[in-house]
Amino acid sequence: MTFLADLFHNTIFLSAVTGWLVAQVMKTVIHLILTKEFVAERMVGSGGMPSSHSATVCGLATAAGITYGGGSFEFAISVILAIIVMYDAMGVRRETGIQAKVLNEMLEAFSTMGKKMSPEEKLKEFVGHTPLQVLAGAILGIVIAVVICYL
């Protein structure tokens, strides 16, 4: 088989990518419902509900566990990766988003004295995730991997 054919028959790869894709679409739809505004950036951007990072790594880890077993090095590596990614999403990246929001508010307040800030100059606020967003992404990734691996 060719490389691409092998790749698209790889349940571990498909579980991770499908987890990411479904989470991004859900995130965009949820944002649309809450704000009544379609923002195309939500399809590829980070932050928001559910966490696509968590869906991706949990889909990866679950599929590796199903395929190779709980005692395999593939499963161990993917679980450690998932823990690091989800911890980072709730920690450093979430704090970065909170700080960006505060800085944007400060810059906006200062802009009344002079030049107005353009939307391109604002810092990105959707960066990290709340624990609920990470949990929702993790559950989504696990469910997707189970469905893909047992189909």
Rank of each mutant, 00 (worst) to 15 (best):
G70W: 09
T28C: 11
T56A: 12
E74H: 13
I80C: 08
A55V: 03
K36L: 06
V92F: 13
L21C: 11
M43I: 15
A23C: 07
D6M: 11
I30E: 00
S46R: 06
I77W: 07
R94W: 07
G19C: 04
A76W: 03
G47F: 03
V22P: 02
T67H: 11
S72P: 04
A63Q: 04
L4S: 09
E37G: 08
G71D: 12
V39D: 15
P50Q: 05
T28Q: 08
H53Y: 06
G91V: 13
L21Y: 01
A61I: 06
L34Y: 00
A89P: 01
T28F: 06
W20T: 10
V92K: 13
E37H: 15
L60E: 03
S46V: 00
H53I: 05
G59H: 08
M90T: 14
A89V: 06
V57H: 02
A82V: 07
M26D: 04
L7R: 10
V57A: 05
S51C: 11
F13R: 09
A16E: 03
V85I: 15
G45T: 04
R94D: 03
T35D: 06
G19W: 01
A40L: 13
G69W: 07
H53W: 04
Y68L: 06
A89E: 05
L14P: 02
S78R: 02
A61K: 02
I83M: 12
I33L: 11
T18M: 12
G91R: 14
W20D: 01
V92A: 15
T35P: 00
A5E: 15
V39W: 06
V79Q: 04
R94Q: 09
A63W: 00
M43D: 05
G48C: 07
M49V: 05
V39A: 14
I84S: 07
V22W: 05
F8Y: 13
T2K: 09
W20P: 00
G70K: 00
R94A: 07
V25Y: 07
R94N: 09
W20N: 05
S46T: 14
S15K: 02
T35Y: 08
H9W: 00
D6I: 09
R42L: 02
T96A: 15
S78T: 14
A82Y: 01
T28R: 03
S15T: 08
S51Q: 06
V79M: 14
V25M: 10
E41T: 11
G59P: 01
A40M: 13
T2G: 10
M49H: 11
L34T: 05
G70C: 05
A23L: 08
L21I: 14
F3P: 00
S46E: 03
R93K: 11
E95T: 13
S78Y: 07
V25P: 00
I77H: 02
S52F: 01
M49G: 01
A89C: 07
L4I: 12
A5S: 13
I33P: 00
